[in-house]
């Protein structure tokens, strides 16, 4: 067989993969499609916030507490921010910070987890015991405590949550990697004399990716909700940055007067987590269904 023939076959192989993705998306249930569309809209809002929002993020030129009008679709808050613009800018801050935190925690947690599963011995024992101790403290409580010690601020927030969340990721990554490590194909690679890098990146990682991706979706939701809760409690993202959690907190007194304004940012949070959950749920059913249908 010539190299050209092989090359065409390779490309054909790739195309079927792409076709697979399209086919999978076409077969997705409505709930998952709804989730994906919502996520897409949020992503667009976050990326193009300055172009979409009618007013700048920290603009307070308007009067406070204006009712909704053509200029201010949702009115203004007590300090005179255009509420709608704040809502859009908050997407950028809240989602961005949650995403960075989740990525960081994932990188740290899964690296440690896979290493522990592969090495076993003292490394696994040591890290596992430390993680067990951290797991015994609820994330929100620990985050509150640490923020009071090292002070509020976005950097501190990301670091603390990423560290705490990494312990949860570690547990899962270690468990799924342990399942993969005992497989005969890993032993076979070992017997061949393969190095650690090959075993991790060619034999183990491709096989534990589906549960890890699912977990990433759930971890993102958790981190996102925790940041929202901390901001709501006044120790998360700080003004003048717009953020949904603190927007609820800043305007919460309006509720008693019958204004639904603080419900909007809370709804924005809920809608995104519901959307991510719907997609994750579909993904979970698909991957576990494949395993059963063997």
């Amino acid at each position: 067989m010539s190299a050209i023939q092989l090359e065409t076959r390779l490309i054909k192989g790739r195309r079927t993969l792409w076709q697979n993705i399209v086919r999978t998306l076409k077969a997705s249930p409505n709930s998952a499609r709804f989730g994906m569309i919502v996520m897409l809209i949020y992503a667009l809002c976050a990326i193009f916030a300055p172009w979409i929002a009618p007013f700048p993020e920290a603009d307070t030129s308007a009067k406070g507490m204006l009712p909704s009008s053509w200029t201010h679709i949702m009115g203004t808050d007590q300090t005179g921010h255009d509420f709608f613009s704040r809502l859009i800018f908050a997407a950028r801050n809240t989602i961005g910070i949650a995403l960075i935190t989740a990525l960081l925690s994932f990188f740290v947690g899964s690296t440690l987890g896979i290493t522990a599963a592969l090495q076993r011995g003292w490394f696994d024992q040591g890290v596992s015991r430390v993680v067990d101790a951290f797991l015994a403290i609820p994330v929100l409580i620990f985050a509150l405590m640490m923020l009071s010690v090292i002070g509020k601020g976005v950097f501190n927030l990301i670091m603390i949550l990423a560290l705490l969340d990494a312990t949860r990721v570690f547990r899962l990554a270690r468990a799924v990697a342990l399942n993969a490590v005992v497989m005969d194909y890993v032993e076979s690679a070992r017997l061949r004399g393969e190095g650690t890098r090959w075993i991790v990146f060619r034999e183990i990682v491709p096989n534990i990716l589906p549960p890890l991706i699912t977990e990433f979706g759930l971890r993102f939701c958790f981190v996102f909700l925790t940041i929202a809760a901390l901001s709501f409690l006044g120790v998360g993202i700080q003004p003048p940055s717009a953020d949904w959690g603190s927007m609820v907190a800043e305007n919460k007194s309006l509720i008693s007067y019958g204004y639904a304004l603080p419900l909007y940012p809370a709804f924005a949070i809920a809608l995104l987590t519901v959307a991510v959950n719907l997609v994750v749920d579909w993904f979970l059913q698909r991957t576990s269904g494949l395993r059963d249908g063997k």
Binding site: D184, Y185, R202, P206, N207
Partner: peptide, 18 residues
């Protein structure tokens, strides 16, 4: 290592599914 090879009971677990 090359000179001694092994074949397993279950090809399902012996071949990397990916």
């Amino acid at each position: 290592l090359r000179r001694i090879q092994m074949i397993y009971q279950s090809a399902d677990t012996a071949l990397n599914p990916r």
